[in-house]
Each structure stands twice: as structure tokens, then as C-alpha cells.
Nucleic acid binder design. Structure first.
Lengths: 247, 247
DNA sequence: GTCTAATGTGAGCACTGCTCACGAAACAGA
DNA sequence: TCTGTTTCGTGAGCAGTGCTCACATTAGAC
């Protein structure tokens, strides 16, 4: 049976297996600290080894190579973000669709600001030559699933206009996600969900990567007000609005 | 007098100055090739030197360090994208506002797909510890200026609803860009411009960084159809729409 | 108690950015 | 034309990286 993130790790039987799991966890913990402090590009297996008081070649007994360590950290980051978002969104009354959406947006942004290097690791430019392994797609889909669920819920509540017809070519283009959703969700809603997702991602990334420099004032209040306004605009465009963008 | 991108280089007087300019250009050219092939993270001064048949320490006579070389490539990339977008958008009739917007979007995406590493360099996660110098803000603003201009043009044509009133806090948050625009452009329009810019950026980045994997079908046709649809949706949300998102 | 497999060690390879002392060449001023 | 000053190319060297490998040690299985 394969191990997948979120699944509890098999209880180690022997002392050796226990030690192995423990040391692997220590490596991951240390790597996490280094990542948060220095960023993914500067993550060094040798430095992690030094911090743990082991010789550099010893970590290769636990981690096949640097890319594998990064992959673990990527899954970690996806799960961290996904958990934060699910908690935040889950605390809002189910029928307050706009608030659910805004809670999701702000949760993503708050997490990103608190964990900039982790965010950059999962949503920044991929390390060249690095291909995201299949293990990441589960954790990676947690946030978009939340967004699409909000839109689908709004739809089923009957409080939204009927899904708009979508051009056949466009509908065909999203066949993969449509299949993933069991083919039951109208393409228009999936497209809305994706649009909100990429709009949210764009706004957070812009802020985090410094593209709002000389555009939006630097303080926390200004940045939050700007972000909130723009996310309300996105919601509006999705049929999630409360009537007007202005607050 | 300081040299700024876009400004013609002073004609070199002596043979030495001419040689210097030439070798610096060769270094930049080679670095550009390496960037396109291997990505920014793998850009190596030593490798560039090798390609040019010079010893590694010699390039330090022309480029202070690796970061400076990256900065030149960043300015280069901004200008390349800006030029491509301005050309594309400039070819559309001035009064076809939606088409101007879509031309801009598709130009950004086309350039990004053709120059993925350059795109990642300017819109991906910034290299840790690297702060974008002031020289980049001019070239960096070319695309957003195009977008905001479209929206302002539409506004002045009288074919759009009046700019919506904006919450005072939100309006204050965009003081920097508002000042940059001379204080004449209504905040609502600037906010729309920024929203379109970050929506466009989000969509292109998602595709380029592989976040559409298992979501949107892989082929060129599917990806283009999806992108076009989403950009039309963004346009819609901006008041640039032609009436309906469906084509 | 023995045998095998897992684990830790340190040397080593090839690479990186960057510095520095050293000559050689090119320029500028007298 | 001669002299003095910059500028430029060279190669060695430092500190760091990822990763491999032969070797010793140790822990678990039988």
C-alpha cells in the first residue's frame, strides 16, 4: 500500500524503524526551518545535515536527493495552506456565500504573508527541471475544491442565475476537471471556480512578489483594503456578489 | 548622466570603450541564451565565461556580480514583453476596446509561452534576497499602462457607465499609482486596470507553472480556448464586455 | 551466535560565486 | 615620443554546493 499525504503513517515495528522515522522527521523539520528562513533556492542538504550534527552523506540514507526533500516540503506547504483555508472557510455560515468566498481569499493571503517562502515554493516559478510528482496533486487541489464548492453550493441553493451555456470548445477544454468532478457540475460553474482561483492567486502573488510596489501603499491596512476590494470585484464577476463592489 | 533602459547608449569614443561595450553585449547575449535554456536559477557566470572563451574571473571586469547580470536580464525581459504587447495592442482599432484588451491578454500569454524562463524571471518568485532595483520599474510598468489606458480610453469615449464611487480607504490605498497617473484618473478605473492585470497574470502563470495540469486539457487549442474564455470573463467584470461571456 | 542488511564516516569529484596578486596592454598627458 | 596611470586578462585559491563510494560499525533476523 502506498503512503499518501494525510494518511497516517504505519506504526514502526522495530526500534530501527522507529529511529528511521524519527530522523526523517527531524530532517524534514530542519529543512522546513531553513526553507522559511532562506527560501527554496538556498535550501542545502549539507546545511541541514550540519544542523542535525550528522555528516552530509548520512542524510542521503533518508532522503534520495534534494528534489525529494523539496517535494516533501511542497506537500507540506499545500497541506498547510489547504488546512488554514478549510478552517477559515468552514467557520462561516454555509449560506453566506460571499462571506465564504471572502474568508477563503483572506485565508490564502494571510497564510501566504505568514509563509512567503512556502507560498513561493508552491505557487512561484517551478525549479527548472523539476516536475511536480503525482503525490502533490491531492494536497494541491484543496483550495480550488473549496472555491468550486462555494459556487456549486450557491448554485444548488437556487439563489443564483442558471449556469450560462458555454461554447463547446471551451467546455471540452476543461474535460479533465469536469471528469474529476464526476461530470455533474455544469462547465460554467467550474470555469467560474477556476477564474476565482486564478484571480485570487494573481492578487496574492502580485503583492507577495513586490509588484504592488509604487502601486498600492505599503501598510497592512492599505494592502488589506485593496485586496478585499479586488476580491469583492472577483466575486461580483462570478455571480457571488452582494450587489455592489463598493463597500 | 545615468544610463536608463530605452535610452540610446553613448557612442564609445576610444577603441577600449568600444571593445568594452562589445564584450559586455556578448556577455549579455550569452547569458540570455543560457537563461532561455536553463532558467535563472541555473544561470552561471562561469558557464557564460566558458562559452565566450574567457576565464571566469574576467567577466567580473564587466559585470559586478551574478545579481547584476540577472537585473540586466530582467530589464531585458520586461522590455521584450512590453514591446510585444504594445505592438499587438497597437494594431487593433482604437475604439474596439474589448479587442484591445483581448489582444493584450493574448500577447502576454503568447510571449510567456515563447519565453517561459524570462517570464518566470520577472513574474515568478523573486530570487531570495534579491531586491528589484529602481531601473526595472519603468520597463515593468509598460503592460499595466497599456491595460489602464484601454480602460481610461473606454471611459473617455462615454461608452461606459460612470466610474463607481470607491470607499475612501480603498481609494487611499492606491495613492501611489494614482499620483503616478497625475491624480486625474478616477480610482475605480485604476482599480479595474489593476484587477485586469492581476487576473491576466494569474491565468498566464497558472498555465505556465503547471497548475492547469489535470484541470484543462493539454493541447494548444484547449488551452487557448480556456484562456480566451477566462479573459473575456475578466473583461466582463471590468465593464469591457461585449454583452456575454459565451462566444 | 552468526549472518545480513541498515546505518554512519570521510574522502573525493565536479561544480558554483567571488577575490586577489600579478603581469601585459592600452590610453592620457607632458 | 616618453612616462605614468588605468584597464584588462590570468590563474590560483577560498568556501560553499550536490552527490557517490568504499569502508567500518551496528542492530535485527534466524
Amino acid at each position: 500500500m502506498r503512503q499518501t499525504a494525510g494518511m497516517p503513517i504505519d506504526a514502526p515495528r522495530t526500534a530501527r524503524e522507529r529511529a528511521r522515522a524519527e530522523i526523517t522527521a527531524e530532517i524534514l523539520d530542519t529543512a522546513r526551518i531553513h526553507l522559511a528562513r532562506d527560501g527554496a533556492a538556498a535550501l542545502s542538504l549539507r546545511a541541514v545535515a550540519r544542523d542535525l550534527g550528522m555528516v552530509s552523506s548520512a542524510v542521503y540514507r533518508y532522503v534520495p536527493n534534494r528534489d525529494a526533500l523539496l517535494t516533501m516540503l511542497i506537500i507540506d506547504a499545500y497541506d498547510g495552506l489547504g488546512g488554514a483555508v478549510e478552517t477559515s472557510e468552514g467557520a462561516v455560515a454555509r449560506t453566506d456565500y460571499l462571506d465564504r468566498f471572502l474568508a477563503t481569499c483572506h485565508a490564502v493571503r494571510t497564510w501566504a504573508i505568514a509563509h512567503p517562502q512556502e507560498y513561493a515554493l508552491i505557487y512561484g516559478s517551478p525549479v527548472p527541471g523539476y516536475a511536480a510528482p503525482e503525490d502533490t496533486i491531492g494536497p494541491a487541489s484543496r483550495v480550488p475544491v473549496v472555491l468550486i464548492t462555494i459556487i456549486v453550493d450557491l448554485q444548488s441553493s437556487g439563489r443564483a442565475p442558471r449556469p450560462a451555456p458555454v461554447d463547446a470548445g471551451v467546455a471540452a477544454s476543461i474535460a479533465p476537471i469536469s471528469d474529476f468532478a464526476g461530470g455533474q457540475v455544469p462547465p460554467d460553474l467550474l470555469l467560474r471556480g477556476m477564474a476565482s482561483w486564478s484571480g485570487l492567486f494573481g492578487a496574492v502573488s502580485f503583492e507577495l512578489y513586490g509588484h504592488l510596489h509604487n502601486v498600492v501603499a505599503e501598510g497592512t491596512a492599505a494592502r488589506t483594503a485593496y485586496f478585499d476590494h479586488q476580491m469583492r470585484r472577483v466575486a461580483e464577476g462570478l455571480g457571488l456578489g452582494s450587489g455592489t463592489v463598493a463597500r
